[in-house]
């Protein structure tokens, strides 16, 4: 059937067609958010939907910024950056130790990390809130950052990347008299750099979007994130879809742009981070 020569079969055409239709359907919600954010009340509530805003204006954004939407955005950025930085540092160190050192308790520890990854993360939130309140961190940005850093996915991902470090290089460095810290900084980090890139972008996006954790840990006005802000707008003015779409656009467009810029790293991270059965 397939003689080695690549030619376009009916099957290929149908697949391409099906994928293109699906692509339109998957892009559509984002398109609807963005166009919706520029529509006035009349266009939003029109009986016949305006596929393209006929009278685009910034009115929704003007109203959005009367809320402290920039403050929300700022909080989201701060949380995501801190979670990203701390996760990368701790995970790179731990992943290297798990992959390249032989030590007492290694198997047990690694198994513990893997088992914890299979745990339903959200279940732990109930006691986590108690703990965070006990530490007097409730309603601070740390309440979201610290638990995010504790999540074992990053350690697992960095262990996968650290496996690729040639042991001979580490041996050679030791013979040359390099200390542990120097070896880590000059050899390990150079080799696992793509892994750190993948983990950084992955952590940033998932922290930005971790609505449930934010919902439980943050409820005073000055610490709300953009996700919480949109949810608040929706709860308070449920049919003002123009305003809500402006909020959704503000919350999602920056993160989509970041994703598109770094999607190569991202894909690599997801693939390397998969536990093979």
């Amino acid at each position: 059937m397939n003689s080695g020569v690549k030619k376009t079969s009916t099957y290929d055409v149908i697949t391409m067609l099906a994928m293109s239709v699906l692509a339109v359907l998957f892009i559509f919600p984002v398109y609807w958010i963005i166009t919706g954010s520029f529509k006035d009340a009349a266009a939003i509530n029109a009986a016949i939907p305006q596929w393209f805003p006929q009278n685009p204006n910034l009115e929704n954004f003007v109203r959005l910024f009367k809320n402290p939407a920039l403050r929300w955005l700022f909080n989201s950025i701060v949380i995501s950056i801190f979670a990203m930085g701390l996760t990368c540092v701790t995970a790179a160190m731990a992943g290297y130790a798990l992959a390249k050192k032989r030590f007492i308790g290694q198997k047990v520890l690694f198994t513990l990390y893997i088992c914890a990854m299979a745990l339903p993360k959200q279940v732990v939130l109930v006691p986590l809130l108690k703990e965070i309140s006990f530490l007097n961190l409730h309603n601070t940005l740390w309440a979201v950052v610290l638990p995010t850093v504790g999540w074992p996915f990053g350690v697992f991902l960095m262990k996968q990347f650290s496996e690729t470090i040639p042991t001979e290089m580490l041996e050679a460095a030791r013979i040359d008299g390099a200390g542990e810290v120097q070896t880590f900084l000059s050899i390990v980090l150079t080799i696992v750099k793509p892994g750190i890139g993948a983990l950084a972008i992955f952590t940033f996006i998932s922290t930005w979007n971790d609505y449930f954790l934010q919902l439980i840990m943050l409820n005073s006005k000055e610490v709300l994130t953009i996700s919480l802000g949109i949810a608040k707008l929706q709860a308070e003015m449920s049919n003002d879809f123009g305003l809500i779409m402006a909020g959704a656009a503000l919350g999602s467009v920056p993160i989509i742009i970041i994703f598109l810029m770094f999607q190569k790293y991202f894909t690599q991270g997801i693939t390397m981070g998969a536990v093979k059965g």
Partner: peptide, 14 residues
């Protein structure tokens, strides 16, 4: 992958 990146809240409201 777009719906994942867009975020639960933005997806839910639209």
């Amino acid at each position: 992958y777009l719906p994942v990146v867009t975020g639960t809240v933005a997806v839910a409201v639209v």
